[in-house]
Design a protein around this nucleic acid. Sequence first.
DNA 1: GTGAAAGCGCTAACAT
DNA 2: ATGTTAGCGCTTTCAC
Lengths: 341, 341
Amino acid sequence: MNIKEISKLANVSVATVSRVVNNDPKVRQATKEKVEQIMKEFNYKPNSYATRLSKGVTDNIIGLIVPDVGNILFAEMIEVISNQAEKENFTILLCNTNGEYEKEKKFTKILIDYKVKGVIYIPGKYESDKNYTHLKEISLNSVPIVFLDREIKGFDFDGVFLDNENISYNITKEILKTTPKKIYFISGSLDISSANERYLGFKKTIDELEISNEEYEIKYGDFKFDSGYRLGEDILKNHKNDELTIYIANNTMALGFLKILKKNSKKFKRITIAIFGISDVLDMLLDEENYITCKLPNKEIAKKSFELLIDKIKNSYTCDEKRKKILCNTTIINRINQKSF
Amino acid sequence: MNIKEISKLANVSVATVSRVVNNDPKVRQATKEKVEQIMKEFNYKPNSYATRLSKGVTDNIIGLIVPDVGNILFAEMIEVISNQAEKENFTILLCNTNGEYEKEKKFTKILIDYKVKGVIYIPGKYESDKNYTHLKEISLNSVPIVFLDREIKGFDFDGVFLDNENISYNITKEILKTTPKKIYFISGSLDISSANERYLGFKKTIDELEISNEEYEIKYGDFKFDSGYRLGEDILKNHKNDELTIYIANNTMALGFLKILKKNSKKFKRITIAIFGISDVLDMLLDEENYITCKLPNKEIAKKSFELLIDKIKNSYTCDEKRKKILCNTTIINRINQKSF
DNA sequence: GTGAAAGCGCTAACAT
DNA sequence: ATGTTAGCGCTTTCAC
């Protein structure tokens, strides 16, 4: 069913049908009703491609590129962005990349092709042997884009991030203040900007306090539950001392670590744990431990990234000459129970 | 930049440009290179609306209607669906409804307008005073649709669900086998099909075992952490006995409940907990409790729903005369430590 | 108030 | 191998 067929059935011109569809006031009531009746009867729906081509408008869609939709932190960010988008009458094209370069590239091209109004981009690992042409294309096509939570080296797009280095620096300082023993640092891959920054914050304290090489050890995981568990096993097997100090730079790995720790906690006289980012659940699990952590303002940065994007879209500026890089801070929560020592 | 302008700049016809764009082999190499050079130079991108209108094709998009993207269970389902979709070269339009009827309606209309190839629909509450015209429109427009996890009364679309009633029936039977004390049942709103089925399963056991009205009590929450916490407070305040038996029909509420329980657990000689659906985290929290639970095959039903949808799309059948209603079962995990009594 | 017709940007016969 | 042109379905200007 197209407009022509409807017009014939209603004994009017296509122009009139079009007017009815678009609620043009200057079509006579009787005509309008007749046309509407036919449209309903034959369940006529205008072809949106034709409409947009003709009107020269594009859909209100924004693209959302995410490494792992199933990670609760990203999921919460997506939720915030969805809700904001709905209010502004945008729909979201969701692209789950699993952190893979090729998928980021593929999806970016699709988003450009779909003429999305803007893109919120959470990158995966930075791969130095790749040239990220898709991001250059984004620029070339003047598609408004903002980074969220992570960024890509060499691309100075606007973005909203946690102040990872600073927060990590403070957490490390806090934990080393009370526990000058050997500290284990469980890090994510340094090819991810956020993990890298957290590492740098850790290292900064280590250097400032002149902690010797023997007094700290760094382990690298992949952000997943299992990886935290496995690294935990490893550490617990080899750690001889009866005091344990550990700093885990990521939430999900912390859960995995705690799982294995719970099975072995009796071995230790004193356990001190620092975790970058707390959740309701972690909070419950840590109930009786000594720990240092911080609230993760992940929903906040998500909200801000959307606001930033909307601003870019509405004011149609895409050139990021004066880059807006927003860093979100948070406060450290210190639950080290001094009395117990 | 449109095809005409490019054709002029390259001194060829629009047809030739179109051929280059579509990789038609019968364009001479030299011509091809010239055109490509111009296209690159002016960063030409075909207008996809025009292309689709002309070719009469539609985008490979499927719509995903979800009540709460930030709920980890739904997030995991979305992840599975995204990954499957990517393999089949579909992109996902994500619609977060917060379970609200009006949003479901709004998004459904958008999806129809966008001519999506299919829809996976997780409904929120059933509202009996609404007429769900948008679902009738889906049918009228022959958009392939499948329900996931929950369904809507009166619409016999294909769908994939947990076998809620049966699982709940078994959990209840299991828990009442060993703990014939008063049992509290924390339910979600009965306007949600899955919660309703779980309630029915609970009730079936209650009736079969002829449990008296004094021996059970039902509380209604809203699926959120806080709601579990609050109902927990309520129960713990009023429960006089030193043995506590409770069955929580939902994962997130269970977490909230456990939070308040942990603060009060010393009051009880014996605590038995049943939870509909376990997660890594719950597992850790329940470590030392008596509990009954089951794995939630949420990723499985998500995968199946996508497969079902793809099948409908590829074989373009939309009439759900022989409805495919797939129920997924799971096994009960019983960790009640008999020895301790 | 309504209709005729040009145009949106592209594709695909058909012609050369 | 390349060009001409009639569509795709809708909007919109200009007549009447």
